[in-house]
Amino acid sequence: MIKALAIKELRESAGLMALASLGMVWALAGLMGVNPLRYLSGGYVAPDQSIAFVNDSFATWASVLVGGLAVALGLKQSAWERGRDTYYFLLWRPVSRRVVFGTKIIVGVFLVVALLAVAIGIYGWWASIPGKKPAPFEWSMTFSAWKLALALPLIYLGAFLSGLRPGRWFGTRLIPLAGVFVWVFFASAVPYIWLFIPMLVLGYFGVLVAISYFVETSDF
C-alpha cells in the first residue's frame, strides 16, 4: 500500500516536476552557453569567464527553480487534497496517518533533491569536459551546491506545514513557510559548516514535530 501511495504522490507531482525540469533545462542550457535568447539579441556574446559552481549563476538558478519547486510541491501535496475533500477518502483507508503523510513527504523530498542532484550532475559532467570552461573542474567545487540540497528540503517542509496547518487567513497560514525561509537564510549566511548543519537539523526537527502534531490533531 505504501507503493500505491507513493505512485499516487508521484503522479500528482508530475506536472510541477515537469515544469521545474523544463526550467532547469533552460537554465542549464544558458549556463552552457546555448541560450537561444542571447543569439536573438543579436549582439556581442561575452566570452565565458566564470568558473563552474564557484562564481557563475548556477546557485541562483538552482535556488530559484528548485526552491520554487519545493514551495509549490509542499503546498500542493498538503493543501490540494483539503480543497478537494479527498482527505476524507484518503485518511479513512486502513493505514495510519503517519504512513500517509510520511510517504507524501518522502516523495516530495526525493523529487526536490533529485532535481537538484541531476542538475549538479549534468552541469558538473559538462564542466569537466576540457575546454568548456576556462578553469579546470573539481567535484569539490560543487560543495556549495550540495549545501543547497541540504537546505531546500527544509523549505519544502515549511511549505508542507503551511498547507497542512488550518488557518482562516491565507497570510497567517504562510507563517511557517516564512519562518523556515528566514531560518534557512540565516543558516546559509553562517560561514561555519559546523554551525550550519546543527541549525538545519534543528529546523528539520522543529518542522517535523509540528507536522506530526497537525497531522494528528487538525480538522480535515
Partner: peptide, 24 residues
C-alpha cells in the same frame, strides 16, 4: 465511509481508482 460529494481522485481512471483502493 463515503464523504459528501463522493470525493475521489479525479485524475484517475475507474480502473486506477479500484487498484489504488484495493492496495489497502
Amino acid at each position: 465511509y463515503i464523504a459528501e460529494g463522493h470525493p475521489l481522485y479525479n485524475w484517475m481512471t475507474i480502473g486506477e481508482a479500484v487498484r489504488f483502493t484495493r492496495a489497502f
